Amino acid sequence: MTETNVILEYIEDTYSDIPLYPGNTFEKAKIRELVKMAELYLELPARWSHSEVFFGQTVNELTKKETKRALCKGIEGVARCAQFSPYLAGEQLTAADIVFLYSVDLASVVADKSFGLDLLGMAPGAKQLMTLLNQREDVMKIAEDRKIGNINFKKYMASLT
Results as ranks from 00 to 15, higher is better:
27 E>G: 08
34 L>M: 01
54 F>S: 07
161 T>A: 15
28 K>D: 08
128 Q>V: 14
142 I>G: 10
130 M>Y: 03
150 N>T: 14
119 L>Q: 05
66 E>V: 04
84 F>D: 05
146 R>F: 09
54 F>T: 07
30 K>S: 11
144 E>A: 09
141 K>E: 06
145 D>S: 15
50 H>C: 09
153 F>T: 15
142 I>Y: 08
79 A>R: 11
59 V>S: 03
54 F>D: 05
28 K>R: 14
35 V>M: 02
125 G>F: 00
43 E>N: 10
33 E>R: 12
40 L>M: 10
11 I>F: 01
57 Q>H: 13
35 V>L: 01
44 L>W: 05
136 R>W: 01
103 S>H: 07
25 T>D: 15
79 A>V: 07
159 S>R: 12
68 K>Y: 01
91 E>S: 11
82 A>M: 01
107 A>K: 00
131 T>Q: 15
132 L>H: 10
65 K>M: 07
54 F>W: 09
70 A>Q: 05
45 P>L: 02
61 E>W: 09
107 A>E: 00
131 T>N: 14
95 A>N: 02
4 T>I: 07
52 E>P: 03
108 S>L: 05
130 M>A: 10
97 D>S: 04
84 F>K: 05
6 V>G: 10
40 L>F: 05
14 T>F: 00
24 N>P: 04
59 V>H: 07
151 I>T: 13
38 A>S: 13
139 V>L: 02
102 Y>K: 13
134 N>W: 09
48 W>D: 12
65 K>I: 02
160 L>V: 15
136 R>P: 02
118 D>R: 09
158 A>T: 11
2 T>M: 12
107 A>D: 00
152 N>E: 13
115 F>N: 03
17 D>E: 14
140 M>A: 13
14 T>M: 05
72 C>Q: 09
60 N>Q: 05
37 M>A: 07
71 L>E: 00
36 K>G: 11
5 N>M: 06
106 L>I: 14
42 L>N: 02
16 S>Y: 06
65 K>C: 05
51 S>C: 12
10 Y>W: 05
109 V>P: 06
58 T>F: 08
149 G>D: 13
11 I>S: 01
39 E>V: 01
120 L>R: 11
19 P>M: 03
160 L>F: 13
29 A>D: 09
61 E>C: 12
69 R>F: 02
140 M>D: 07
15 Y>H: 11
57 Q>F: 10
38 A>K: 06
10 Y>R: 06
63 T>F: 04
